[in-house]
């Protein structure tokens, strides 16, 4: 590895295992060839990827900038994939808790004191539950669509960056 230092740039990445193939492909567009791939010493879901690239390449500045943009977009994409529908999940769980609370209160009222008040509570709880059961899937769908759209846009932007990188890199064997 030491002799490589003077002619080649070395880049080491910690990559989520499910993203390894994708990352290798993306980095290839920037002239990075994978030279080592090992499991991470500390985390089971990570892999250490070592890439090498000729040190002197055409348009290195712009390639570096684009690469950093790509890294940022890849990470944003991963973040979005992890949190697919936070709003509907939050609404669903909080309303679910409210429904549960209303029904329990209702049952307590029915068994201990007022049958009418208890029935009203249970009715309201069930009504909200039915309403939420109808609305939440729709909300989830809308949210997921928006998320998927964002992810698709990011994918498109990454593809665009990669295309630009390939263009900038040109023929790697070409003399600078």
């Amino acid at each position: 590895m030491n002799s490589l230092i003077y002619e080649q740039d070395i880049l080491t990445l910690y990559v989520k295992k499910d993203k390894v193939q994708q990352v290798v492909q993306y980095y290839k567009n920037f002239g990075w060839d994978i030279v080592k791939q090992t499991n991470n010493d500390w985390f089971i879901d990570l892999m250490d990827l070592t890439f090498a690239r000729q040190s002197k390449i055409k348009n290195k500045d712009e390639l570096q900038l684009l690469q950093i943009y790509m890294e940022e977009k890849l990470n944003t994409q991963a973040k979005l994939e992890n949190y697919k529908a936070p709003k509907s999940f939050m609404l669903g769980s909080s309303v679910g808790l409210l429904v549960l609370f209303l029904i329990i209160i209702g049952i307590i009222f029915i068994t201990k004191s007022s049958f009418v008040l208890g029935t009203i509570f249970v009715f309201i709880g069930i009504s909200i539950a039915i309403f939420v059961m109808i609305i939440i899937p729709k909300l989830y769908k809308i949210e997921k669509l928006a998320h998927d759209r964002k992810i698709r846009i990011l994918s498109y932007q990454i593809q665009k960056i990669c295309k630009r990188a390939v263009m900038l890199l040109g023929d790697r064997n070409e003399e600078i």
Partner: peptide, 21 residues
């Protein structure tokens, strides 16, 4: 991170696809 001998039993927990060393 210090793992006190419990290497490789946990996930990174970070929400990222990649991180440059």
């Amino acid at each position: 991170k210090f793992s006190f001998g419990f290497n490789k039993i946990r996930k990174s927990g970070h929400i990222f696809a990649l991180k440059v060393r």
